[in-house]
């Protein structure tokens, strides 16, 4: 005997400057996709549906970074029609790889790519969603992890705080039983300063973590950077590895600037 049918929560998925990989992660939940569609009303998800329902939405997942003036307007609108707004992926939480423009002259960048840069309207910076509107939860990763995405959604449905720890990748590496690539092989690895969540994939494949989940909640770069140097990285290498997919994350940004100032 069922209670009267409760209103299904309405889900919306939005895209800003990004590669689509994070929203694709939702479609990569092959085992759960149809079940999810029974529990929530997928009201707006352009990549997956041509039926777009107007707001308000109970949960908005936002992918991508803000890089144009129209983006700024659009994210304010999305915030206004969303009860909870969750940003997904490094672009949305830290500006993404395209935030490398923040260090350069955008006009120069445009000229490098486009013969007629004047055709292209873009902001000088790529910024995370949280730089523009309040965000209820940030899910890290370039790309996000499928299990974590499901956890965020099911936690939202259950009214639970998502179990998405902010500690270092080392936690996951050890739990996975991977031999530490830094200690045992002398491979530079950003694991100790990187936010967990991927499941410590790179060390499991014998390479050092390259920080695609951005900084963890407790980093110590002055102690950490010498370790990268010990294992063979020079200043430029250190700067490059910090300046990739989470380059504009404050901790990575500060550490890379400090390196250049040396």
């Amino acid at each position: 005997m069922n209670a009267e049918p409760r209103r299904r929560p309405r889900l919306a998925v939005w895209k800003f400057a990004s590669c689509d990989g994070c929203q694709l992660t939702l479609l990569d939940c092959e085992d759960e996709l149809l079940g999810l569609a029974e529990q929530v009303e997928i009201a707006h998800f352009l990549e997956a549906s041509s039926a777009s329902e107007p707001g308000p939405y109970d949960l908005s997942l936002v992918e991508g970074s803000v890089t144009t003036a129209q983006d700024v307007e659009r994210i304010h609108h999305i915030r206004a029609v969303s009860r909870r707004l969750v940003t997904i992926g490094a672009c949305a939480t830290a500006g993404g790889v395209q935030a490398l423009r923040n260090y350069a002259d955008v006009a120069e960048f445009q000229a490098a790519v486009y013969a007629r840069p004047d055709y292209v309207a873009t902001l000088a910076t790529s910024t995370p969603i949280s730089a523009h509107v309040p965000v209820d939860f940030e899910l890290r990763g370039c790309p996000i992890d499928r299990r974590q995405l499901l956890e965020v959604i099911t936690a939202h449905l259950a009214g639970r705080r998502p179990a998405v720890p902010a500690h270092s990748v080392c936690f996951e590496c050890k739990q996975r039983g991977t031999v530490c690539v830094t200690v045992a092989h002398g491979t530079p690895c950003l694991g100790p300063v990187t936010h967990a969540g991927c499941g410590a994939i790179c060390p499991a494949y014998g390479r050092g973590c390259y920080g695609c989940f951005g900084p963890g909640d407790s980093t110590n770069f002055p102690a950490f950077v010498p370790l990268l140097r010990r294992d063979g990285m020079d200043t430029l290498d250190v700067v490059r590895v910090l300046r990739t997919f989470n380059t504009a994350a404050p901790e990575f940004d500060a550490a890379s600037r400090k390196e250049l100032d040396r």
Partner: peptide, 13 residues
Amino acid sequence: AARCLTCGNCTMV
């Protein structure tokens, strides 16, 4: 504390 990365490795091993 100035040297510690608080990465948790010591506790895991």
